[in-house]
Design a binder for these strands. Sequence first.
DNA 1: ATATGTTTTTGAAACGTTTCAATAAATGAA
DNA 2: TTCATTTATTGAAACGTTTCAAAAACATAT
Lengths: 364, 364
Amino acid sequence: MVGDNGATRGGLDDGTHPTKDGKKATIRDVANWAKVSLGTVSNVLNDPDRVAAATRNRVLDAIEATGFIRNIAARQLRGGGSKAIGIVILDSSNPFFTEMIRGAEDALRPEGYLLIACSTDGNEERETNYLRHLEEHQVEGVLITPSDDNLGQIIEFHDRGTPVVLVDRESNSGELCSVTVDDVKGGSIAVTHLIEEGHRKIVFINGPSSIRQCRDRRAGVDVAIRTLKNNSNTDKIEIVDIGVPALSIAAGEDIANSLLDIDPSITAIMCANDLLAIGVMRGITRSGSDLLSRIALVGYDDITFSSLVSPPLTSVRQPQYDLGHAAAKLLLEELADATHRHREIRFTPDLVVRESSCKHSIQS
Amino acid sequence: MVGDNGATRGGLDDGTHPTKDGKKATIRDVANWAKVSLGTVSNVLNDPDRVAAATRNRVLDAIEATGFIRNIAARQLRGGGSKAIGIVILDSSNPFFTEMIRGAEDALRPEGYLLIACSTDGNEERETNYLRHLEEHQVEGVLITPSDDNLGQIIEFHDRGTPVVLVDRESNSGELCSVTVDDVKGGSIAVTHLIEEGHRKIVFINGPSSIRQCRDRRAGVDVAIRTLKNNSNTDKIEIVDIGVPALSIAAGEDIANSLLDIDPSITAIMCANDLLAIGVMRGITRSGSDLLSRIALVGYDDITFSSLVSPPLTSVRQPQYDLGHAAAKLLLEELADATHRHREIRFTPDLVVRESSCKHSIQS
DNA sequence: ATATGTTTTTGAAACGTTTCAATAAATGAA
DNA sequence: TTCATTTATTGAAACGTTTCAAAAACATAT
């Protein structure tokens, strides 16, 4: 039938060669091989029910015979999506972010999306650069932990047409979806634990106040103290703030020396994240000091290795994998529904108590 | 001048609107705004010296006024590259791989490439799937740590036109570039250290022999023993092999219990990687046993956290960042030079001695 | 055999950008 | 002013795929 059609056409001297000159097979090669039109091959690929079974099988045979691999760029140009999602993180050596990527990847893989990973290291110019490249690639969406408090460029990026989900960062006015952890609560439960252990003078080692997570965790400390004052006759509690330029192992190590001669009435240290706490631990251990045996230490994040350090670190557990997974799900939702309403998913952290904070005996 | 040309043409009623209906500006919008041809805009973007300064500035102004963002898919379709590189790794929660990605990203970023990250978790089917998706996207190259010993599908993938660099894996017949570490040597120096510390009966906990790194590291043990026998009157050295199904913390923990009642003449344990060693450490610590204070332990990789565990782990240091960085450089080299000759870059590991292996006193 | 309704297939055009032969414009020398 | 050479700009066509109106093919009833 279709063979007759081809004969009726005559002059079809493109022949039935699958590929020429080792070039990759295109949809035209498949069509020639199966003696159907380009549109029929496209229908077999994208809307198979619209094609008669016999034709469909012939096309599928042709696809196999020619070794056809579809060209996403061509589809994209004609109006299809890129099947790629960008994920922009702050630091690829922080297990917090790599777990998060893992969660996102596991959500996106079954949907056939590829994940383009970009590390900004907190550098806004690099973030700008990455966003531009992602836009040229017309990624279908972006999951991003912002490098700066000011969301201006990210909102503009979104307004130019690319869906965005903020990760571990809320949207100020609900113009973007976001997935967050209640860091105020995280700060509260950490310091509450220390206070219940009897600590009354606590150091809080914090990163830059431009980072909202740092601010929230510190604010949670104040909330907890206020709550405890209202509820009981707790002794006066004092927080001593120390600032570091970055939330890294190195920054923690750098500050460790200044902790060695610390006021003896200080009996506990709370760090804004685990890398900082681990760095403090490492710096103190390296100095040969026994400070760690008399001072309680609490981190934040509960990264995989926090239970492995010495002493095992008490830490506020963040659902890192769930953050990434939920963010990706939210993005898929926004892509699937043009009437999608932006929302925030907020996770509640919990405290994992280990040796670093509860082997101490405080004499009141 | 050019304005006159436009007037001469007449009938150009496309007008000078930057965008219509909120759509993204295309090269046509820029051309209309600047009153030049599409080709001139393209020349300004790609070959600016070919355009007169006055014209060039007008086009640049138009690009800014219209908010033009280039469309990579269109360029790709016309024959340009995708400016994307795939990186296929085994396990995104192993810091070995995340450091490697970091190295690759740092090499590729300045060249304007985006990095598509794919985790196979050692699953060959997932590797197949990812390679197919990467091929549809026409990535300019792929860095890959294979999930299987058999490189068949990767070689076919490469033969279909996408440059490939193997990472931490050599190419059997030099048909692919590769970046490796001499794991035979790594195994040798690790066991040599133990033997020089006086150990004569040593457990080697290894992963699946289908993984070439596992085989090489174990082979390095034999090389070292043979060398020592030839060079001195060393006592008889015995290696006790234990196999585990995966190179993970969990696999290490699972095997820890069977180590508790181990033959007392065994004084040292060598693990095929750090995660395994850390898992063993964790399992033994959890059981409350003091085995770690009488047995030496050596890992392999020297991931970031190995120095932080208790006791700090002696480990063969792999240049993870350098592996990724060198692999990316090799790929860029292959992309830049059609006459490129495939080669292997081989790094030599070194041993980082820490507390886990050298605080023991062996009575001969 | 003809008319009608349904299913299947076709193929022109679109998508945004690059490329390069042809054309136009500019420059310098006689 | 004319001519030759150099520089700058143009625009048609290509790239691979999808889309949808039109045409063709098929099935059924009269």
